[in-house]
């Protein structure tokens, strides 16, 4: 790729008018070639991301016959909801989807309620052990789920909590809590401390300042973090398949029946699981860097 020289000379020695015109043209062309090549590359990568989603969508909205057919169409013509209907009316799917939603909602409520005070403490207080706690939270976030799922399953069996929707939600809360705490902390850190001080100067107790000033300003960020929590729980499959037997969540149910089911079921299921993640990215786009960027710190 070519580079554009930034003009640095402040006292231009005036060359003839034609020469500058030619130079400008050449510089402009170099500039547009560079721009153009970046665009082409950007579009190729965008296509690489979008194409598989388009293809699975095509499958989900073709007739089951078209899904089984070969060679396949690359667009859903004729369009049909038959495949989706078939998937959604398969035994156990609606129940599994319901379980998934219930687990995800319990997870997001528990996780957010626990994370708000913890995130606030990390964002606002300097206290002995703060860095250790932060680091600890950061490292459990990278903890292998696999390690937790097996012993928890055994423990839940012992405590008569095995195969329960709420048990899985408890487990998912443990998995999402570190992330939620760090995201919520970064949201709180984004609310200037001066605002809180101003509230206290003008007559608020610390608790009231939190309620009147900090929380309203943090709400959009906390909502985004809750959506993230929801999606994390909705997507989680390893713990789900270990901790449940009859009360499968959607991914666990799909994974469990994968080798016994045909392509229409798989593709429709794959697409159905995508839906929340597509909505998710729309809602959290402003907070993208709150969520993942702060991993750097």
């Amino acid at each position: 790729m070519t580079t554009i020289e930034t003009p640095i000379n402040t006292t231009p020695s005036r060359p003839s008018m034609e020469a500058t015109a030619v130079d400008r043209k050449r510089a402009k062309r170099r500039h547009s070639i560079r721009r153009g090549s970046i665009y082409i590359l950007a579009c190729i990568i965008a296509l690489w991301i979008l194409l598989p989603i388009w293809l699975i969508g095509t499958m989900a909205f073709s007739t089951p016959e078209d899904v089984r057919n070969y060679p396949k169409h690359f667009a859903p013509v004729p369009a049909s909801t038959e495949t989706m209907d078939f998937f959604l009316n398969t035994d156990g799917i609606q129940r599994a989807a319901r379980n998934s939603i219930v687990v995800a909602i319990i997870t997001l409520i528990l996780s957010t309620l626990l994370a708000i005070p913890a995130g606030y403490a990390i964002a606002r207080y300097l206290f002995p052990g703060r860095d250790a706690i932060r680091l600890g939270i950061l490292s459990v976030r990278a903890f292998p789920i696999v390690v937790l799922a097996v012993p928890l399953a055994i423990t839940f069996i012992k405590w008569d909590m095995y195969d329960k929707v709420y048990s899985l939600a408890l487990m998912h809360t443990a998995l999402t809590l570190p992330t939620t705490i760090l995201v919520v902390a970064s949201v709180f850190a984004g609310v200037p401390y001066e605002l809180e001080e101003a509230a206290r100067i003008f007559g608020c107790t610390p608790a009231k300042a939190f309620w009147k000033v900090v929380l309203p300003l943090a709400t959009p960020g906390i909502a985004a973090s809750a959506i993230l929590t929801f999606v994390l729980s909705w997507n989680e499959v390893f713990a789900a398949i270990l901790l449940t037997l009859t009360n499968r969540t959607l991914p666990a149910q799909i994974l469990y029946t994968l080798d016994k089911s045909g392509d229409p079921f798989k593709f429709a299921g794959g697409f159905f699981m995508l839906i929340p993640s597509l909505i998710f990215i729309f809602f959290i786009r402003r907070y993208l860097f709150n969520m993942y960027g702060q991993l750097n710190k």
Binding site: E194, L195, E197, A198, I201, V213, L217
Partner: peptide, 10 residues
């Protein structure tokens, strides 16, 4: 009452 450096307007 106080005026803050960064104004601290809500």
């Amino acid at each position: 009452s106080m005026v803050f450096q960064n104004y601290a307007i809500f």
